[in-house]
């Protein structure tokens, strides 16, 4: 259970997020939609603690996390998958997974490399390959698998479909649905409405750092006016 209220974040003097409020419940896939520069990545980075918010409250399973270090947030079971993947290029696939490994957590799926290779069969075929010698799609799978090794109950996915070929995008959608089936809560940021429709239960729209819309995915799909206003290019 992730609850965010009145979140304000700034980089130096540039104020990015204004009173962002959102929540995500167990077993739910929630998408944060918005154009480039709307504040999607900044929101997720504020949640995991990579950016220190100016003000506001972030609760995870009832506990305040907005003053914690990223490693403390991660150890509470909030996983983060960055937009740029940030695979450790000098480390093999197995070693990348090892970095993400955390002890078993009550009430969350327990992942081992073997279980992850069932989810991502490609990775199972290149266990010893260096992270720097993988394709973009493979890296995207590895970065998710690496975060799952921490046995999170909630995962933040920053633009998972970006820069992937249509085939891999389909796979990514299937993966997110698998995670939902495992009981995970997923909060993802996206620009791609079509992709969001494939996976999300609910949606928020963010523009210039403010939440402009909140509703179920079905409602948003039906509301052409909102889509025109905030999402069309």
């Amino acid at each position: 259970m992730l609850e965010v209220s009145a979140l304000n974040t700034a980089y130096g003097r540039a104020h990015i997020l204004f009173d962002v409020a959102l929540d995500a419940r167990p077993g739910e896939v929630v998408v944060l939609l918005g154009r480039n520069g709307a504040g999607k990545s900044t929101t997720l980075k504020s949640l995991i603690g990579l950016v220190r918010p100016l003000s506001g409250e972030i609760r995870f399973n009832g506990r305040r996390i907005d003053r914690l270090q990223p490693y403390q947030v991660a150890r509470l079971g909030l996983g983060y998958v960055p937009e740029e993947r940030r695979i450790f290029a000098d480390l093999s696939v197995m070693e990348n997974l090892e970095v993400g490994r955390q002890p078993r957590r009550d009430g969350a799926a327990f992942w081992t490399p073997e279980r992850l290779f069932e989810l991502f069969p490609n990775l199972g075929r290149m266990k010893e390959r260096g992270g720097g010698r993988m394709s973009g799609g493979e890296q995207q799978m590895l970065t998710i698998a690496r975060t799952l090794m921490g046995n999170p109950s909630t995962v933040l996915l920053d633009e998972p479909s970006e820069g992937l070929s249509p085939l891999i995008v389909e796979q990514m959608a299937a993966t997110i649905r698998d995670l939902k089936r495992e009981g995970l809560c997923v909060l993802l940021s996206e620009q791609n409405l079509h992709f969001s429709e494939l996976v999300a239960d609910r949606a928020y729209i963010i523009e210039t750092g403010q939440i402009r819309y909140s509703g179920t995915m079905a409602e948003l799909s039906a509301d052409e006016a909102v889509r025109e206003q905030y999402l069309s290019v």
Partner: peptide
């Protein structure tokens, strides 16, 4: 060793290692 793997990961990108639960 796990410790060594974490050291090499932190050498490359210590912020990401932190976001994965590694106490730097």
């Amino acid at each position: 060793t796990r410790w060594g793997t974490l050291v090499r990961a932190a050498t490359e990108d210590r912020e990401m290692a932190g976001a994965l639960g590694v106490n730097q």
